[in-house]
């Protein structure tokens, strides 16, 4: 049963993606250009003022985190908003596994797709420009996953808001910028900033990319922090969504009433 549902979600997500082929290709090209710009641009400017480790790898790690987080969170929230209007949300809600799992399965497809894209582009970059990016698969993948899971939590929270208040889409964009803020706040001056979503993961990712460290060479405390933060935010997001869901059912607004 669960396997069938997982497979169905993946097949559907894949089909929908290829149906929007233009979006997919333009996504690829944009990403490639941003990567290239980051590298060459950062080189010529020579460091940056913000606390990202002041190196292009630092910026790169920040960008990577942000991009993944954005893909993970807003895609989910947008889907809920759009599908509530078309009635496919209610239809998926009728599934015995419930909408939450369907969303998680779809997110898992998006994760695999987006991460493959990142590695592919890193390879293409290396081939076309000779710029090597340290993306050790075994080390970056778990961290990227932690970013994505936190983003899913955030996405659930946003989706919940979207269910209750129909006009919050414009708010999504604000959140996208807020997310940058989460990991730009320097920890030494604001120690609590390390508990913000994404911040710890970004730090770890940065070290892996900058120093070429392997994940097992990093301090255990950092990794535990990442783990705790990840679990906390995804749980919070899911709880908020569950709350919104039950409110929406009370008001009868799961659909487009």
């Amino acid at each position: 049963m669960w396997l069938v549902v997982l497979q169905s979600c993946w097949v559907k997500a894949y089909k929908l993606m290829t149906r929007y082929l233009f979006n997919m290709l333009s996504g690829f090209v944009t990403l490639y250009m941003v990567f290239a710009l980051l590298f060459f641009g950062a080189k010529s400017i020579g460091g940056s003022a913000i606390d990202l480790g002041d190196t292009l790898e630092g910026i790169f790690a920040g960008y990577l985190t942000w991009m993944l987080a954005m893909m993970g969170s807003t895609e989910l929230a947008w889907n809920v908003t759009n599908e509530a209007q078309t009635g496919t949300f209610e239809q998926q809600y009728l599934s015995p596994v419930g909408y939450r799992w369907i969303a998680v399965f779809t997110e898992s497809f998006n994760f695999v797709y987006n991460v493959s894209l990142i590695f592919l582009i890193a390879l293409v970059m290396a081939a076309t420009t000779g710029q090597e990016i340290h993306l050790h698969l075994g080390s970056t993948l778990p961290v990227m996953l932690s970013v994505y899971i936190q983003a899913t939590g955030l996405g659930f929270a946003l989706a919940g808001l979207a269910l209750m208040y129909k006009r919050v889409q414009s708010f999504f964009q604000v959140v996208q910028f807020l997310m940058v803020g989460f990991f730009l706040i320097p920890w030494d001056r604001f120690p609590w900033a390390r508990y913000l979503p994404l911040a710890a993961s970004q730090r770890v990712l940065q070290r892996i990319i900058m120093n070429g460290d392997r994940i097992w060479q990093l301090p255990a405390a950092d990794l535990i922090l990442v783990l705790c933060v990840t679990v906390t935010y995804v749980a919070l997001g899911a709880a908020l969504f569950a709350l919104a869901e039950s409110k929406a059912k009370e008001r009868g607004v799961l659909g487009q009433y």
Binding site: K12, K15, L16, T86, G87, T88, Q91, L94
Partner: peptide, 18 residues
Amino acid sequence: AAKLAAVLEGARNTYWRL
């Protein structure tokens, strides 16, 4: 839920892109 299916009123119910 496993015993029920429905077509709901006034909604698309399906993915138009599929």
